[in-house]
Design a protein around this nucleic acid. Structure first.
Lengths: 127, 127, 127, 127
DNA sequence: GTGGTCTAGACCACA
DNA sequence: GTGGTCTAGACCACC
């Protein structure tokens, strides 16, 4: 997993965890029909209460992304990867639009902003 | 202003308002020694409790960006625009980096992301 | 409200509460933009933990039926009554189909079943 | 059998299975002194743990509807069909009354409900 | 006062 | 072991 909840963020742990799971499913690191980490193990790993993780799994299940099988675990549904990808991309799109708009309003030039984006994209272009 | 608090965001209204005021000051829409909107009028405009706005003004004051004058309102300090600009740009930079990284991880291509950024920049290039 | 959670039912309290709230909204007893009972007061009334009621409200909110305003309460959305009605009717439809099918399979005649239904409808035909 | 346990129902699988067996016995599809499906075969068919099925058989046995014969299987008792029929019909009657009442309260008309019931009865009238 | 979130710990049903 | 549910009680943000 290699993921830690940022305790001092304004986004609550549960939302951070949901977002992270969405990223994992969207990025194909957890595949269709594959099992998500168990509630208790993920809770231990990211140092939150199991109830918090359970809430996250419930949320993903209500969005059709995964499905709990009693006594067995939580599994990615067929539609899971598609739904997760759509959710992640839509969120990122909105965030980028908002950030860019604010940067422009604050007096940052178009070139400044493109430079920032290029920096963010670089690590993916060289390898 | 043309600004509304997103009630269901995880970033608390007070922080949204601070960010917005920072943008206005950074962008020169509120200038040095200019008065910020009154607590009550801003509260009424963004449909928020006056206490919340007051808290925001205290926050900006503690960061040296504005200063309350006895009974006459809150004014932007000399250093205000510079401080606001630095804060906004740094925040936006971090947000853009994070969003772009997540979009890439979710399977979005570099071109997809550039397209999103271009869309965000467009409104500023034509006028 | 005049509603009590049946402790010894197989349907968990939270689901009972959700169903009851759906009925109230579907039946127009709580109208658009009207406030639902506060989490704490409803919890006290039906003798469950406030967290349980909070979970129910979250569920309804995730289905677009109501919307929480921080510090103010939970309100029925514009689409709430329509969504609630659809949910209740769909549930009843499924239950009736299942019950009737099982009664038939158990050897009950069509007339027996119609008689049961007429008994259920009677109280609404006389007034 | 043509029967599947609904994994995400609030009624536990064991109860669903008991209900289904009651229907089969009540409807005469499993007769007096006839053997019920073996625990393992039924468990395999409905994709449930054999322990769960065993529990169901114990339940039916405690209600006098069937009886285990040493090592040879579980058989319907003389009183079984009568007891099963009574149980099923009473359950269905209660369920129908409850569902119809809720549908009425949710704004469904008497005709709407009769239509639902007719749909449920149709498959038995044509053949 | 309102809702939102988290923690801690219990019990149940199922594999 | 798995998830599901509930209780109890804490803290935060907002009205």
């Amino acid at each position: 997993m290699a993921f830690r909840v940022e305790v001092h963020s304004t986004t609550p742990p549960s939302k951070q965890i949901v977002n992270h799971l969405l990223s994992l499913i969207a990025g194909g690191e957890i595949r269709v029909e594959e099992r998500l980490p168990s509630i208790r193990s993920l809770a231990a790993e990211v140092l939150v209460n199991p109830n918090t993780v359970a809430k996250c799994y419930r949320e993903l299940e209500s969005r059709g992304i995964c499905r709990a099988k009693n006594g067995s675990g939580v599994y990615v549904t067929d539609a899971g990867p598609r739904l997760a990808r759509a959710a992640v991309i839509e969120t990122c799109r909105r965030e980028i639009l908002a950030s860019v708009a604010r940067a422009l309003q604050a007096g940052q030039t178009v070139d400044d902003i493109l430079q920032i984006v290029r920096n963010a994209l670089e690590p993916m272009e060289t390898p």
